[in-house]
Design a protein around this nucleic acid. Structure first.
Lengths: 135, 135
DNA sequence: CCTTGCTTTAGAGCGCGCTCAAAGCTGTAG
DNA sequence: CTACAGCTTTGAGCGCGCTCTAAAGCAAGG
């Protein structure tokens, strides 16, 4: 119970580099990470969960500055819950926009793939039986 | 017929800055943009279409270096169609991964929003019920 | 003619998000 | 003891994708 992780272990678990984990702590995204008797970081389960959530924010395009704002609100305690929820809802809308844009672009790219497939087919036919063009 | 655009006009149509349009040309993403008698750029309809396609690649996370590769293949002509299709198919897979990641992260973020809503509700109840003799 | 505002180029600068380096301490193996 | 590896900190460096500047030319309005 109450697992603890060295920075290496947390790095492996999260996929973030040890550099990035220290960087996140330095800029205030992680606070109060406990240390052992030599000053080495010893992350708790709750730190792992928090880092994983940060990664979800980053992975959906939230800039570090906003993650910092969110993190600061979290440190301030329960009185900031509404503001945090509003931040996440704004971000949620942003994610929906991203997904819509991806869908649009994907469709266009797939059209281009199909177009190329058509050209590849034409070309192989042209070799087989020299079709006269009727454009 | 055969519309032409100044760099300003293309900037407005695409949403890219004039700086970015010149930058794209400088690094070879756009080639053979015609000029008027004073050396001013005069983009054709085909240039607009190409820029719009470039924006779709960028908008789906393709790095400039790969866009450059694609652009170079395009300049080489019809013999590169298969390679271009393969590039787009690889990118298509990448887009699908992005969309899946977004969906996952979104779900997690929405869970958190719901969690906050629950906490907000609790809190408002506490105010309503616990303190009948209000301030 | 002069001003304003657009265009051109080459090159410098910038913001973001890491990523690495230097210098020093701790722990383990041989 | 020596080596080596991993941890600490602060500060510098880097890759990406723009974004801006400088210096000069061109065009239209007053």
């Amino acid at each position: 119970m109450e697992n603890q992780y060295t920075i290496q272990q947390l790095s492996q678990k999260t996929g973030l580099s040890v550099h990035t984990l220290r960087y996140y702590e330095r800029i205030g995204l992680l606070e109060g990470v406990p240390r052992d008797e030599h000053g080495y970081r010893l992350y708790r389960e709750s730190d792992l969960l928090w880092v994983e959530f940060l990664m979800r924010l980053r992975g959906t395009g939230m800039p570090i500055s906003k993650m910092k704002r969110f993190s600061d609100l979290r440190s301030e305690g329960g009185s900031t819950i509404t503001e945090r929820r509003e931040m996440l809802e704004a971000h949620q809308a942003h994610i929906h926009e991203q997904m819509q844009a991806l869908r649009d672009h994907l469709r266009s790219i797939e059209d281009k793939i199909d177009h190329y497939k058509g050209m590849e087919k034409e070309k192989s036919q042209a070799v087989s039986f020299n079709v006269p063009t009727g454009k």
